[in-house]
Design a protein around this nucleic acid. Structure first.
Length: 873
RNA sequence: GGGGAUGUGGCGGAAUUGGUAGACGCGCAGGUCUCAAAAACCUGUGGCCGCAAGGCCGUGUGGGUUCGAUUCCCACCAUCCCCACCA
């Protein structure tokens, strides 16, 4: 053992030992319990960033802990390797996206190896490899056979920068998920869709299973995103005297969750995009104002929509519709607050019981009629309505609603829906906000969609024995438009059925397809007959712990749940929820720095608070997520070079609990480094004498100091085990190790003269525990110290230390004594003191006596081992 | 507008079930060692009053429940995140 701690040296050395011993290579073993520890796989952008380091440090700590606790731990890593940046790089540098991607993978793999993460690298996958994406294609064909994949002409989200269509989840809030400044356009396009809506109920209902294992926040976000609303559709006939203005349709179908309020309806309102408006305009019967309104509303961009705020605008179309419940004739309006994409794109307006309708009716002077009132309300049924009354529960009772008067709201909904069904003008209907997943992308660096379009036979899947449909190696990514469509030997093919000339589908799959099932592939990564072997999968999956960023709450994390449900229905797996526990780790942040002259500055460009280029004082901005645009980035490689991988990993785990944001701090990293040096020195001091020392405890007599050290050792083992294994609170586990280290130092300096055998025993026990407990956080130094302490076997696969409850037990306790709930004294008692002993100790305390000053004791509350509270008057 | 969180020293953060608030680290101050410095080690470090002993205050604000509240309940304030006209 070297006297000084040189991280670079020992890290390389220990990584080699692990690799030679194949320490992290695992196979299924039915005799052992398994643990699948998974971290979200990175996009091979070129370099690892601190967010990755944090994510993977957390995962590795847990994997190591479980491994040392006897689990067969699957801990893999791979690359989400398809996608736009590669294609853009290809166009910009005239390179090949596959080459660019593979080079990045090389570089990033080297970085991950430098950090010493315990992956089974034999299982590494890259989604851009034909051996992988072949199974994307296979899944598509299975889904198509089952009607879960279909093609339709639809209005889709389009990002001009990506030059491709986007799924709804990728266009939240009207902006592209990759280009937050780019509003999505709407385009008409024929696209492939996965039938998410078939699974909407399950996706929602199964969320219950995840409670406790997933963050509440993510469950709520998914629940809202799926957005189930149970209601009814009702058809309003267009009035006969509309004949002069009417064209094709004879009725308007509306969706409502409040059919009970239908007698209070004062209008039917349709979205400007509603087909009725098309018909009206096409027929030439629309007034100029109506036509202008519709055209203007349809052209509004998401930006303008936000800028305009929530001002409701609408116009009477000239059409009339008939309320089927009471034959009342209602005006048909079109308005900006009714959206075409939800329900039927048409609503009934009930101002007395809906806030939006109330606001709208007030603005345009439409009549307002109350049809629900509070049970027991004394207000007259025709009293003016001051505000919408929207309660949808037992507290509402129907009025002004003909035969339904007197019903409570829930029963009215049931009765009126049944009535509408019986009469044939309505029906129960459940709507979802979640849409079918548009998976076609008009890009070239992705999985080719394995279908052939034949003029004779229609859509024909590529025969499974011809998979994969490979990306052509000579594809020119610079081709404007769609490179695959322009690549004739790829696009032109023959129909597998009629052998006539046909055209390949030249779109590629959304890259979220790749990541929807990648972790199943890790289990059986080289299988060339199936995506995976069901027996192997049955052992390893589901994932026990998944760790990644919150940004995928409604993207990847919904798609992957969907994919599991589809795989279950395909008979590939026998469970529906693929991830038992989810940890969403916080971001890694740093304060931004800005110079008036040179804009954003990186940490290296700020010297003593001044700009490196012009010496101006730098404005320090908010602490924000590290990002290229703000230049507030700390490079992992630089930090590893300065401090070593262990220190960087330790800081990531110590600085904040995992789910919180973490601010990078050089001083904090220094602190972590100082701690490791401290550990190194004390082990160095004692390692020779403790390593060849081995008497039995029973023969030894321990001094009070040695007993205290042993107590701390066993308490620390207990605490670190609970903090990692049960709470995933790595920061407090590290704090406990620092305390143990401080205790060892205190013991060391308390030794007068030569240590006796008992002292050596206590020291050896403490130092070995320290080395072992450090393994999840700082495996290299832990391994090195373990070796120095005289062990030839690898630490990272050796058993986790067990604590002795008796030794961890305090001998004496300091018990706080309260007087009327206020702390007045502390007394020392034996740990096993009875309540009576505690009471006497408290009462006999001088400070208590003085404070009591002859007052009457009303009662004494005793919490064993905790406190005494004397209540006195 | 709706939903969700969070609020504790100069800073990051502890406090397992309602039971000693501030563990651990950073920073700061003082000291030891040294020709000197760095490193390391030791001591102190919530605020106010006090030479001290000690006292008072203190977990965003105001109430409440309780012998006892950072923890539970109500209201408010602040910050952050998500969804935003979903009928």
């Amino acid at each position: 053992m070297n006297e000084k701690y040189f991280p670079a040296e020992i890290e390389t050395k220990q990584q080699q030992r692990w690799a030679e011993a194949k320490a992290f290579e695992v196979e299924i073993d039915p005799t052992r319990k398994k643990f699948y520890c998974l971290e979200m796989l990175p996009y091979p952008s070129g370099r690892i960033h601190m967010g990755h380091v944090r994510n993977y440090s957390i995962g590795d700590a847990l994997a190591c802990f479980k491994r040392m606790n006897g689990y067969n731990v699957l801990h893999p890593m791979g690359w989400d390797a398809f996608g736009m940046p590669a294609e853009n790089a290809a166009i910009k540098h005239n390179a090949r996206p596959d080459q660019w991607t593979l080079e990045n993978i090389e570089a990033m793999r080297a970085q991950l190896k430098r950090l010493g993460f315990s992956y089974d690298w034999r299982r590494e996958i890259a989604s851009c490899a034909p051996e992988y994406y072949r199974w994307n294609q296979w899944f598509f064909i299975q889904m198509w056979k089952r009607g879960l994949l279909y093609r339709k002409n639809a209005t889709v989200n389009w990002c001009a920068k990506c030059n491709t269509s986007l799924a709804n989840e990728q266009a939240e809030g009207g902006y592209c998920w990759r280009h937050e400044d780019t509003p999505v356009e709407q385009r008409e396009l024929e696209q492939w869709f996965i039938k998410v809506t078939d699974y909407a109920d399950q996706l929602l209902d199964d969320l219950v299973e995840l409670e406790g294992g997933w963050p509440e926040r993510v469950i709520t976000m998914q629940r809202n995103w799926i957005g189930r609303s149970v209601g009814a559709e009702v058809d309003f006939a267009l009035a006969d005297d509309n004949n002069s203005t009417r064209s094709g349709s004879d009725r308007i179908r509306i969706f409502t969750t409040r059919i009970d309020t239908i007698f209070g309806s004062n209008a039917v309102i349709v979205a400007p995009e509603h087909e009725l408006m098309d018909e009206l305009i096409a027929s030439g019967k629309a007034s100029a104002e109506v036509r202008d309104f519709v055209i203007k509303q349809r052209a509004i961009s998401p930006e303008e929509r936000v800028a305009e705020g929530r001002e409701k605008q609408g116009i009477f179309t000239g059409l009339w519709a008939v309320n089927p419940f009471n034959e009342e004739k209602l005006p048909v309006w079109t308005a900006n607050f009714v959206v075409m994409g939800y329900g039927t794109g048409a609503i009934m307006s009930v101002p007395a019981h809906d806030e939006r309708d109330f606001e709208f009716s007030q603005k345009y002077g439409l009549p307002i009629r109350r049809v629900i009132k509070m049970v027991g309300s004394t207000e007259a049924d025709d009293a003016p309505v001051e505000a919408a009354f929207t309660a949808k529960d037992e507290t509402g009772v129907l009025i002004n609603s003909g035969q339904f008067n007197g019903l409570r709201v829930p029963e009215a909904i049931k009765a009126m829906t049944e009535f509408a069904e019986k009469k044939g003008f309505g029906r129960a209907k459940t709507n979802f906000k979640i849409r079918d997943w548009g998976v076609s992308r008009q890009r070239a660096w992705g999985t080719p969609i394995p279908f052939i379009h034949c003029a004779q036979c229609g859509i024909v899947p590529v025969p499974e024995d011809q998979l994969p449909v490979m990306l052509p190696p000579d594809l020119d990514y610079n081709t404007p438009g769609a490179p695959l469509a322009e690549h004739h030997s790829f696009a032109q093919t023959t129909c597998p059925q009629c052998k006539g000339p046909a055209r390949r589908d030249t779109d590629t799959m959304d890259t979220f397809v790749d990541s929807s099932w990648y972790y199943f592939r890790y289990c059986d990564p080289r299988n060339d007959r199936a995506p995976f072997d069901p027996e192997i999968i049955a052992y390893w999956t589901p994932v026990d712990q998944y760790i990644g960023g919150i940004e995928h709450a409604v993207l990847h994390l919904i798609y992957t749940r969907l994919w599991a449900k589809i795989m279950r229905d395909l008979g590939l797996i026998n469970f529906a929820e693929p991830v038992k526990k989810l940890l969403t780790q916080g971001m890694v942040c740093l304060a931004t720095a800005r110079c008036q002259e040179h804009d954003w500055l990186s940490p290296q460009e700020v010297i003593d608070g001044k700009c490196k280029f012009c010496e101006r004082q730098v404005e320090v901005g908010r602490i924000e997520k590290m990002s290229k645009s703000k230049k507030n980035i700390v490079e992992p490689d630089e930090m590893i070079q300065i401090y070593g991988a262990d220190t960087v990993r330790l800081f990531m785990l110590f600085a904040a609990p995992p789910e919180k944001d973490l601010e990078w701090s050089d001083a904090g990293a220094e602190g972590a480094s100082r701690f490791l040096n401290r550990v190194w020195r004390i082990v160095y001091k004692w390692h020779r004498r403790t390593s060849d020392f081995g008497p039995q405890t029973s023969e030894l007599e321990f001094s009070a100091a040695a007993r205290a050290l042993r107590r701390k050792t066993h308490q620390t083992i207990r605490r670190v085990s609970v903090d990692i294994g049960e709470r995933l609170h790595f920061n407090t586990a590290v704090a406990a190790l620092m305390e143990l280290t401080n205790e060892i130092y205190a013991f060391d300096s308390s030794l007068k003269g030569e240590p006796d055998a008992a002292d050596l025993f206590a020291l050896k026990e403490a130092l070995e525990a320290l080395a072992k407990l450090l393994a999840p956080f700082t495996p290299h130094i832990a391994e090195e110290l373990w070796q120095a302490l005289g062990h030839d076997e690898l630490l990272v696969v050796s058993p986790w230390p067990q604590f002795d409850a008796e030794l961890a037990q305090e001998e004496e306790l300091e018990i706080p004594v309260q007087l009327n709930g206020k702390l007045v004294a502390r007394v020392w008692v034996p740990a096993d003191a009875t309540d009576e002993v505690l009471r006497q100790a408290a009462l006999s305390s001088e400070r208590v006596q003085a404070r009591l000053d002859g007052r009457q004791i009303v009662k004494t509350i005793i919490v064993p081992k905790r406190l005494v509270n004397i209540v006195a008057r």
